Simulated scan of single mutants.
Amino acid sequence: MAFSDELLEEGTDIWNAQFEHPFVTELATGELDPEAFRHWVEQDYRYLLDYARVFALGATKARDEATMTHMMDVAHTILDFEMDLHREFAVDYGISVDDLESVEKAPTCVAYTNFLVRTAHEGSIAEIAAAIYPCGQGYLDVAEHMAELAEGEHRYTPFIEKYTSEKFEEAVAWMTELVDRCGEQFPGESEAMREAFRSSARLEHAFWEMCYTHEEWEV
């Protein structure tokens, strides 16, 4: 069994929890509260800035030119391609780019991005690969689940289409290959990879909850 499959099998409980989360199921049917989606647009925009930084930092840990080059390319793609969707949604909600960039991260967003950036600074390329994997594979799997639940087009259809697109599938396939390659090349880091994967997966689930409940700082 490929190492990525081992991680996904161990994370089945978290994946099922994501599939069943009301943010996911209500977005799929178009019934999600627009304010919850607005919270996702704002918080995920801030998240992606750090996610791009993680790939850029990961490039410095890569041991081969191809991986280094690809991780730098991914950082650019996140800032250019993926964040375009957030900017487009922001226009629909009357949010300017300046407003997006000044949004304060909610506690869960802080926890998730801090974990990823710390892993990128302190961890190996293997740990980084495992830490970024739940976001890529998770969004693909969740979006495919949404597509199965959806009946016709609605205001959130562009979200589903974005994360089930061929371009996104190709991006996730590369992340899967990186996880498998690291699992094979660095068997001594398998436990660290499992821990990084599970931490990120749990935070992915917490991110849906954060958006659904409009989480903010209490004080």
Rank of each mutant, 00 (worst) to 15 (best):
L85I: 10
R202M: 06
A192K: 10
E104P: 01
L57R: 06
G30C: 10
R118P: 02
E151M: 09
I14D: 00
S96D: 11
E148F: 02
C135A: 08
L27I: 05
Y112L: 08
V110D: 12
F186G: 06
G183W: 02
V142D: 04
D180W: 05
L203T: 00
E148P: 03
F186L: 13
E148K: 15
K105C: 10
Q185V: 13
V103R: 13
D80W: 13
H76G: 11
F55A: 11
D84R: 13
Y139E: 00
F115S: 11
H70F: 07
D73M: 15
V179I: 09
M71V: 09
S96M: 14
V219N: 13
T25G: 06
C182M: 14
D50E: 12
F3P: 02
F197P: 00
R155K: 15
G94N: 10
V74R: 03
E6P: 02
V24H: 00
T113Q: 03
F159I: 05
E65I: 13
F207Y: 01
Y163C: 00
M1W: 08
E195S: 15
A56W: 05
H205G: 05
A126C: 07
Q18N: 11
I95F: 01
T213D: 08
G123Q: 03
T164H: 08
C211N: 09
L27V: 06
D5C: 07
A56G: 13
Y139I: 03
D92Y: 14
A52E: 02
H145C: 02
W15V: 05
Y51D: 00
A147M: 12
